[in-house]
Computed example of a mutant assay.
Amino acid sequence: MTVGVRISTHLFGRVRKYNELDLYVPPNANQCTPLLVFIHGGAWRSEDKADHAQLAMYLAVQGYTVAVVNYRLSLRNHPHEQPEVQHPDHIDDILDAIHYLIQTPPRSAVYDTTNIHLIGHSCGAHMAMMIILDPASCLKSIRGVIGADGIYDIPLLLQTFPDYTDFIEQAFGTDTSQFVHASPISKFAQHRLPPVLIVHSLEDSLVDLGQAKVMLQHLLSLDAKVQLDTSARGDHYDMLKTPEFIRAVKRFV
Results as ranks from 00 to 15, higher is better:
L158G: 08
L139I: 10
A109Q: 10
P155F: 07
A109E: 10
A148M: 13
G147I: 00
A171C: 11
P162V: 08
F167S: 12
G120P: 03
G147V: 00
D153T: 07
C138M: 08
R107A: 14
I151C: 08
M130W: 06
V145A: 02
S122L: 05
A109R: 05
V110F: 06
P162Y: 08
L158W: 09
I154K: 00
D175W: 12
H121K: 05
R143T: 08
A109M: 11
T174S: 15
I132G: 01
T160H: 12
N115V: 06
Q159N: 12
T174N: 15
H117E: 02
V110S: 10
T174L: 13
S137E: 08
T113A: 14
S122R: 04
G173H: 09
L118K: 03
I154R: 03
S108Y: 10
D166R: 14
Y111D: 07
M130F: 05
A125W: 00
L157M: 12
F172I: 06
G150E: 03
Y164P: 01
A125Y: 00
R107S: 14
S137G: 07
I131V: 15
P162D: 09
F161K: 13
Y152S: 01
T160F: 05
D112S: 14
G144H: 02
C123G: 03
H126R: 06
L118M: 09
G173M: 10
S137P: 03
S137A: 13
N115L: 06
I168C: 11
I168P: 06
G150P: 05
I154T: 03
L157S: 05
H121S: 05
S108L: 11
C123D: 08
I154V: 14
Y164I: 01
